[in-house]
Design a protein around this nucleic acid. Structure first.
Length: 313
DNA sequence: TTAGATAACCGCCAGT
DNA sequence: ACACTGGCGGTTATCT
């Protein structure tokens, strides 16, 4: 199992999955995964946080190959023809390959994502979609599996994806045990919105709200506090208490957050008019969306879109 | 911007 | 006694 690192890549994209596979080895009491961190030139590689990791030069045939994301170092790796050629040679024979975060650009540059549906960091969704023709980006998922190709969204979602790989290899029980070992209270499925991460991260403990929140996220139109309470099978009063205790917030704020999250995805990945975006997220109108968006993110939908349109990883 | 209308919030208390 | 729930109603926030 190889993870491709490079100068300026994201440290957690490497250490997150590495910790998960390492924990799987410990749980199994034998080396199920033979982990190697590789890089274009080998040796010590400085990650974006300044922490250096030891690597060896790429080469050989992995059964699983993951590419870490990064911002500064990304152009340099994607430009390396020797790395691209190696990726193109080993990926057809790998059991699976994929990326974490913006690592998708490295695979895309090698043409290995053509015709696939993939995930990447939310700030890079539109840029990746236009990077190669015939590449579809799911801007909402935290990770996507398309055949042998696994791609995950921002940073920590690499951990969730690694767990899903372990589940594929060793079954649900093994994956659950690894998750428990790492004190990840609940594993997140790939289709979960990357913008609801805050909510779902809070909902990791098996609290009674996580299920109803997932439902809420699919029914953002016609949703209000009373509907949510009915769905949860409790009174409005109790729903308030549950929200305060488990999420540290109120039901209406939770709903608003889900709506604003959805709006952020649509604004970043589509050219839909504000009014249309508002409608799809359950806001009454554009003005409502603008106010709510500002409350949640501190800027207007329009400003957000302008920022999105200016590529910067 | 303002005001009247509506929805959400939460302390309190009684019931289970 | 304890833990929890649900309804009431005044206050506050948000919407139109």
């Amino acid at each position: 199992l190889f993870i491709l690192a490079y100068e300026g890549c994201q440290l957690l994209d490497i250490t997150g999955p590495a910790a998960v596979f390492g924990a799987a080895n410990e749980a199994a009491r034998r080396q199920v995964y033979d982990l190697a961190i590789v890089s274009p030139d080998g040796g010590a590689v400085a990650t974006n946080s300044g922490v250096a990791i030891q690597t060896r030069r790429f080469g050989g045939q992995p059964d699983t190959l993951l590419v870490a994301g990064g911002s500064r170092g990304l152009p340099a790796v994607t430009a390396r023809t020797d790395v691209r050629r190696w990726l193109q040679r080993v990926s057809p024979r790998a059991k699976r390959y994929g990326s974490v975060c913006t690592g998708a650009f490295v695979l895309a540059a090698a043409g290995l994502l053509d015709g696939r549906t993939v995930a990447t960091h939310w700030s890079a969704v539109s840029r990746l979609a236009s990077y190669r023709p015939g590449l579809r980006v799911d801007g909402d998922a935290i990770f996507v599996r398309d055949g042998r190709v696994w791609t995950s969204a921002g940073i920590t979602t690499g951990i969730d994806m690694a767990l899903a790989m372990i589940e594929e290899d060793g079954g649900k029980r093994v994956a659950d045990r690894v998750a428990a070992q790492l004190v990840l209270h609940a594993r997140r499925p790939g289709f979960q919105s990357q913008f609801s991460e805050l909510l779902s991260a809070q909902a990791r403990r098996d609290d009674p709200l996580s299920a109803v929140l997932a439902w809420a996220n699919e029914h953002l139109d016609t949703l209000d506090v009373e509907t949510l309470a009915r769905r949860a099978g409790v009174s409005v009063r109790t729903l308030h208490r549950l929200c305060a205790a488990t999420q540290g917030t109120t039901p209406a704020k939770l709903i608003e957050r889900l709506r604003a999250d959805r709006a952020r995805v649509l604004l970043g990945t589509t050219a839909l008019a504000l009014k249309e975006v508002a409608g799809r997220c359950g806001f009454r109108d554009g003005a409502q969306l603008t106010r709510s968006f500002a409350r949640c993110f501190g800027l207007s939908p329009r400003s957000y879109r302008l920022l999105q349109g200016r590529p910067r990883a």
